[in-house]
Design a protein around this nucleic acid. Sequence first.
DNA 1: ATCCTATCCTGTAGGC
DNA 2: TGCCTACAGGATAGGA
Length: 250
Amino acid sequence: MPELPEVETVRRMLASHVTGRVVQNARVSGAKLRGAVPRTLPLKLRGRRILDVRRHGKYLLLDFDGGLTLLFHLGMSGRWLFYPEPDRRSPNRPDETMKHVHARFVFADGSPLWFQDPRRFGLLRVVPRDRLARDPSLALLGPDPVAEPPTGAALVASARGAKVAVKNFLIDQRRIAGVGNIYASEILFRAGIDPRRRAGALALAEWDRVARETVAVLNEAIARFGTTFSAYRTLWNEPGTYGEKLFVYD
DNA sequence: ATCCTATCCTGTAGGC
DNA sequence: TGCCTACAGGATAGGA
């Protein structure tokens, strides 16, 4: 269940290892994820160079030259597998026998980058960069709490009148983008707030604690490469270690 | 407008 | 050991 820290870990690894690389070839499986993976994806991205890797909440954006961006989401079980040439014998190297591989890129130096997603809740789409702000997946997202740390004052205003449980409030991507089940549980525990309370009923001092713990928990988790319960892996197919630090989730 | 429920999907934990 | 069922949950459509 990749949430912001897991997605940020993937972003950092992609940024340091695929930025500047040129797509020599690409293939898609034709399977339907959250929406079909566009068959035109290989044609659009072939020969293009990766300029930047960005993130908003749980969404990742791979900017290519030529004005196109590959927008993607890991869903529940999506992962990128990458291995640089010439280390051909690594056990983490993408392997032709792997199932549920929905996109395969090969860079100009021969290194592979594959997207694997058994449960197919992920998303993979090519969007012109100048239309990203209007993209339905991104348009309604709230602020990213790492890029723009939340404040108690903003949260208390946002939650005014809300009848939903504060945990459901925190995982609503329109409020804060990137928090899911694991981190909402940890944030509220550390802030000393019962997750079942109505969001609109929390006092400013309580939202202050939520804001502080949101930033703290997410950054501590990023430092440990996220939390691995089952499917999530880093770019090297390795688990994150924040699971050791969880107080309440599961 | 807000809230809630069902749906998508596969791997796997747990019961027997 | 193996079969079966229930469950996990991010996003979202549709209903209340």
